[in-house]
Write a protein that binds this DNA or RNA. Structure first.
Length: 490
RNA sequence: CGGGAUGUAGCUCAGGUGGUAGAGUACACGUCUGGGGGGCGUGUGGUCGCACGUUCGAAUCGUGUCAUCCCGACCA
């Protein structure tokens, strides 16, 4: 077991923090609530970015970039949007510092006050829609299918590495369409792009659904989401896709002349995932030994560690290992041969376990004699011996197996933790056990609020294709037509 | 913004009743090592958050201040 990693049993949230820091993913910085994403963490984020970016482009989107700063006046144009974000915005009020005349250091130059304050974007709808007004005149200019990779700032009271940080990295897609149907289809399409990516690539099973009124994005008519279940039984929203109706088009006066000659407001969507996905990744697969990475996401998929004493042994192993590395690379396997003499084998084993490398291969003198290697799976912590002959294809298929099994394991855990309840007692008991709780709800925001007050649980989503079923609201006993998923969430 | 706590070595922390700085770990060097974070030895490293006060003398006592953390409030 890793030296200083708190076990999950003992304190799950401390385990999470320890893991993020010790696996060298990220660190707290000198700025409250802001993190330094370290090379290993950033490499994983880059894998996420690369695959998502590919999938966005496959579905016809292009990238662009909009300013970090948003004039305060833009922000107030869409009322619901203001309500949603006003309380967590960083505001730029001055543009200059000067030497402190009364002592050391620098102070804000009060003469350099901005006429209009600038908001550091918490999300970019307003600045983007202000631009779109100038991009669109005719139905021929539509649709606009733009994505941006950016950082945003939300001044949260309580932060946690990756899960909720003051500044975070994300992508935000903002699209404009001629018709309502097309915009809704876009929002749904992107929900599935997210869902497919997270399941296929990150091996995290998700439930796709829509948000209730209370949980809907500020300014949206419908919020689609993917919800994942973490090991400790808490839910995590892993991605959202919003159908924004014409709210932003009206607020920013984005109109076009349609085929029929009429001037109409455009229909909008926005959708995003963030570095929070890193948190989902950690809390879905990892264990008391450290990070567990799905092979498709692992910057290093296979590490080879030599075991030797003396130069001659190392040289003999080098020869074999370098040949294996060449084989692996030919098959597209991301491999690292770690023959640093400055660290010992046992230290390296622990290090790569902590960092989540899916497969570790050890080669020592005994292996050279027998023509074998020791091969260890990070996910199951099992070891076996394989002949060097044909190793690359064995490793390649083992990586595939690991990818599949990680997903299956997570899905089994998720499915085993969806509880169907009919009474309030069952409901609260199920929430305390953790997991999703499927229960009837009368459909009113007030009831949802009351349930939240009493239990800290919220409606995570109403699953897509949710079967209709007669029932009674878990709290009020009023008639209900379907079950919805409740959970305590991150 | 309420309630509680903490600031001492890169990190985690110890330093009753005042007397000039310690441990573990990390790091550096040497050595024995090497199939799961190895042993032994030597060493580097600190304006004790900051300011003022009490005192011959303050990490220690007092006042103020700043910062951070926890609980709550808050959080799409």
């Amino acid at each position: 077991m890793a030296k200083n990693l708190t076990t999950r049993d003992k304190d799950y949230s401390r385990w999470y923090n320890d893991l993020v820091v010790q696996a060298d993913l990220a660190d707290n910085s000198g700025v409250r609530g802001c993190m330094v994403i370290k090379p290993h963490g950033y490499a994983i984020w880059e894998k996420i970015q690369a695959e998502l970016d590919f999938r966005f482009k496959e579905t016809g989107h292009v990238n662009a970039y909009f300013p970090l700063f948003i004039p305060k006046s833009y922000f107030s144009k869409e009322a619901a949007h203001v309500d949603g974000f006003a309380k967590e915005c960083a505001v730029v009020t001055h543009y200059r510092l000067k030497n402190n005349p009364d002592g050391p250091g620098v102070i804000v130059d009060e003469d350099a006050k901005l006429e209009e304050e600038l908001i550091v974007r918490p999300t970019s709808e307003t600045i983007i829609w202000d631009s779109y007004r100038n991009w669109v005149q005719s139905y021929r200019d539509l649709p606009i299918l733009v994505n941006q990779w950016a950082n945003v700032v939300r001044w949260e009271m309580r932060t946690r590495l990756f899960l909720r940080t003051t500044e975070f990295l994300w992508q935000e897609g903002h699209t404009a369409h001629a018709t309502e149907a097309e915009a809704v289809a876009e929002a749904v399409q992107m929900l599935h792009v997210y869902g497919d990516f997270v399941e296929e690539y990150m091996a995290i099973p998700v439930i796709r659904g829509v948000k209730s009124d209370n949980e809907r994005f500020a300014g949206a008519l419908e919020t689609y989401c993917i919800e994942a279940l973490m090991q400790d039984g808490k839910a995590l929203q892993a991605g959202t896709s919003h159908f924004l109706g014409q709210n932003f088009a009206k607020a920013f006066d984005v109109k076009f002349q349609d085929k029929d000659g009429e001037v109409k407001h455009v229909w909008a969507t926005s959708w995003g995932v963030s570095t929070r996905l890193m948190g989902a990744l950690i809390m879905t697969h990892s264990d008391d030994h450290g990070l567990v990475l799905p092979p498709k996401l692992a910057p290093i998929q296979v590490v080879i560690v030599p075991i030797y004493r003396g130069e001659e042994e190392l040289q003999a192993i080098d020869e074999v290992a370098n040949a294996l590395v060449a084989d692996f690379k030919k098959m597209g396997i991301r491999v690292k041969y770690d023959h640093r003499d400055t660290y010992k084998p046992g230290w390296k084993f622990n290090e790569y376990e902590l960092k989540g490398v899916p497969i570790r291969i050890a080669i020592g003198p005994k292996d050279l004699e027998k023509g074998t290697v020791e091969i260890a799976r990070r996910d199951t912590l099992t070891k076996s011996y394989l002949p060097m002959e044909g190793l690359a294809s064995e490793v390649s298929s083992m990586l595939d197996v690991i990818q599949v099994e990680l997903f299956e394991r997570a899905k089994a855990h998720r499915d085993a933790n969806i509880h169907f309840v009919t009474t309030w007692e069952e409901f609260t008991a199920a929430l305390d056990r953790g997991g999703f709780v499927s229960a009837h709800w009368d459909g009113s925001p007030e009831t949802e609020d009351q349930i939240k007050d009493k239990t800290k649980a919220t409606i995570r989503c109403i699953p897509l294709d949710n079967p209709l079923e007669e029932g009674q609201c878990i709290l009020t006993g009023k008639p209900s037509t379907q079950r919805v998923l409740f959970a305590r969430a991150y």
